[in-house]
Design a protein around this nucleic acid. Structure first.
Length: 252
DNA sequence: ATGCCACACCTTGTGTGA
């Protein structure tokens, strides 16, 4: 079984690319972020035609997350990390006995912004939401907008205490890990400098100036099934690609 | 310090992203 997390940066602007990618890779489960559309605007028929069940938390213009799955999705919730959060940044469902949580964590803009305050609060609430679930098979994945360590950025000096890399954000990330979760990529590849996002500007991808911010955190019951985590650089290198690459967790 | 790029929007510049 494989589970991909993919920030598509607008599903409507990216639809032909996304459908081609689905046709090529035929993934089991795909967690999409930054749909930038409402549920009514989602091209649901194109996805269902390819055999996917679809669960979505949509919103006009911004944010928006969805889970696509070849197997049925049950126990869907969209009111996370808390009921009443007006931004559509989280969705969860159960697929083949695994609880999948798909997140689009707040970016935060810069540390002086109200958005940064909201990011830290959002992460605090997320930790409380996740805590009761870590005893079972759980995959917490998505665009975390956090580079957990200096190994996860191309130029740590220039990123020092910048948003995505601040001490508070990293503490929030490792606070999730401390619940009993594992950063699956880093466990498999402890010293590999592998990015998942590259700036569109100044040929960021061609120069491999990126950051690793898209993650799969696994609960202990799933660790024996961890096989690999792969980053789809081919997709990121295509014309009209998202600025994030798809990242795929492979489970036995 | 700014723009560099890409996206959405009751667009023709502005806000946002990371």
């Amino acid at each position: 079984m494989n589970i991909t997390t993919f920030n598509v940066n607008s599903i409507r602007a990216r639809l032909e690319r996304l459908l081609g990618w689905l046709d090529d890779r035929d993934p089991d489960v795909v967690c999409l972020q930054e749909l930038k559309c409402t549920e009514a605007e989602l091209p649901r028929a194109e996805l269902e035609k390819r055999g996917y069940h679809v669960a979505i938390a949509g919103q006009k213009s911004w944010n928006g997350v969805a889970i696509l799955s070849k197997e049925p999705i049950t126990d869907v919730e969209i009111d996370l990390p808390w009921r009443g959060d007006v931004q559509a940044r989280g969705i969860t469902g159960v697929v083949a006995g695994i609880r999948i949580v798909n997140l689009y964590v707040v970016n935060g803009q810069d540390t002086a912004s109200d958005k940064y305050v909201y990011k830290l609060e959002w992460l605090k609430q997320l930790r409380e939401w996740v805590a009761p679930h870590v005893g079972g098979p759980l995959v917490l994945c998505g665009d975390f907008n956090i580079a957990p360590a200096d190994l996860d950025v191309y130029d740590p000096a220039s990123w020092h205490e910048q948003v995505l890399c601040t001490t508070a954000e990293r503490e929030a990330f490792f606070g999730l890990v401390a619940l009993g979760l594992t950063d699956s990529f880093r466990k498999l590849h402890p010293a590999r400098r592998q990015f998942t996002w590259w700036d569109y500007r100044q040929s960021g991808f061609e120069q491999n100036k990126g950051v690793r911010i898209d993650h799969h955190l696994l609960s202990a019951p799933l660790l024996p099934r961890l096989v690999d985590v792969t980053v789809d650089l081919t997709e990121r290198g295509q014309p009209q690609a998202s600025d994030h690459a798809p990242v795929t967790l492979h489970l036995s």
